[in-house]
Design a protein around this nucleic acid. Structure first.
Lengths: 277, 277
DNA sequence: CGGCAGCGATACCCGGCCGGTATGGATACC
DNA sequence: GGTATCCATACCGGCCGGGTATCGCTGCCG
């Protein structure tokens, strides 16, 4: 199985339309049809069900779609890491969610910078899906928050564990309470929608929210309520109040990196990160 | 980067000899040279250093070798899993080290078999390197022993933790002791050599040992001493004695599976495995 | 009910690249 | 200095990947 075939199949499986997939791939539709047919023939497995109006995935197709995405990510990562290894100036790229882990990150970078043998560190700020750059090689290490970010397939060290707080408008009826339970906030109308792990938004009404700044603005306008890790208390705006949610699941901040990493700089950074907690 | 290029590069990087690599790949040497040169050109990176007598890897080459092996394994796994998903009869393959985890495995299989919705389970017995079939898709789940087996890149649940015992010939001077320390056995001459994780043997004298039966035979002949997990006590031969090594690292038996697995049967098996401990 | 639009499959052609053989150039060994 | 080894270069042929043109099927709509 060649990566070309995988690229083609993933494109078709995602578009569920040969024409659009071909366009996305920058080739014509007939060669794409043929390539998929050949792939199916060689595997001896039907991957797609074509009615002449609609394309859908078989069970085997869904498996290959998931595996294929992972492989294509790994190939992209291999290219990036190979080039990075050839660059004479070694460096590290840290992926972090913009806003949420700012302080942890700053402390980490400061502590690492004074290490003997420290290399330059670049920071890649993500709106969400912080794990993705790790999988395709754009980053060497990432700060993630369990259980929100997926960590399957990554090596992980726990940095800290904290509770969660509900963030509400100062004028909100709940604002005076000293603590809450999940039940208190779960039945409030959900006026904001977060992107899912695949980047799409759940159906329903409400504004599509992409980062914390947007969310805080909505809360300040009384258009949303959010349950977030405790750290958000630092630097909370005037019109917002944070109330502990005592029975919300604990959030753990972890430092994650791809398996099989053998870089000295990465090992140092992880050691520094786990050193102070 | 195509998988063909990766296969070629990995072959050359492992053989460090274009002629042998070409033979292994079943092609002639000149096309192989050209393919590697093209790969280097496209990446813009030198992967190999050729003197006309010797081939060696650059730093970037070592990175690509590691990444390439992982990718090729993932591709093989994708093909196997896609075919398995298309087979109407779903099944699970469990990889385990022959001999070492026999009882745990039997109990696990029995407990799983009575589960509602249990699928047929095949067992793949390995001499060592139990994690490999997991990476290339020959197995869906494996029983591993930390810290002996690498688990990077795998999802893991701990099943049990146990101490280690020294196994010696009954006539051995240490045989009467009720407990030992690592120091007591570490300076004994090492008459047996185990394969490393990559399947090669360390240099030195001594018989190359591949499995527990061979090892026990050597011990019985007074030609070796081994420090092993406690379970080996069950069913130990007459002429052998097991003595706890109190300061040896704990051995944990884990059940491991590839990340991103979404199989119902696998989830059931893991749940059953972690249920009894 | 028939024309039409959308979509995938088929037919056919062309060019590039992959693989083969032959050979050259460099180096270590005798 | 001759030779064996080993990688690179040169050149050629066949296959395959990609392009255009077209067909067949199926909903949709007037």
């Amino acid at each position: 199985m060649e990566t070309r075939e995988l690229r083609y199949f993933v494109a078709v499986a995602e578009e569920l339309n040969f024409g659009r997939a071909a366009e996305r791939l920058g080739i014509a539709q007939p060669p794409l049809s043929r390539a998929i047919a050949q792939l199916e023939h060689r595997l001896g497995v039907a991957l797609l069900i074509r009615t002449s109006r609609k394309v859908s995935l078989t069970g085997a197709g869904e498996v290959l779609l998931a595996e294929g995405r992972a492989i294509l990510g790994a190939v992209a990562a291999a290219e990036r890491r190979t080039r990075a290894a050839a660059a004479d100036r070694p460096s590290l790229v840290v992926a972090a969610k913009a806003g949420s882990s700012g302080e942890v990150l700053a402390k980490l970078l400061d502590a690492y910078a004074v290490e003997p043998g420290a290399v330059p560190v670049d920071v890649l700020l993500c709106e969400s899906n912080t794990h993705v750059p790790l999988l395709d090689g754009r980053a060497d290490v990432a700060l993630l928050h369990e259980p929100y970010d997926p960590t399957t397939g990554l090596d992980v060290e726990v940095l800290s564990t904290e509770g969660q707080v509900a963030v509400v408008q100062a004028a909100h009826p709940l604002a005076g309470r000293s603590q809450l339970r999940v039940a208190d906030v779960s039945d409030l109308p959900d006026l904001a929608r977060w992107p899912r792990r695949d980047g799409t938004y759940p159906d329903g009404s409400g504004v599509e929210v992409r980062n914390l700044t947007q969310l805080f603005q909505l809360i300040e306008l009384g258009r949303a309520v959010a349950v977030l890790p405790e750290v958000v208390r630092t630097g909370l705006a005037e019109g917002l109040v944070a109330i502990p949610v005592v029975d919300a699941p604990q959030v753990t901040t972890v430092i994650a990196w791809p398996p099989h990493s053998r870089s000295r700089a990465l090992a140092d950074l992880v050691r520094v990160a786990t050193g102070f907690s």
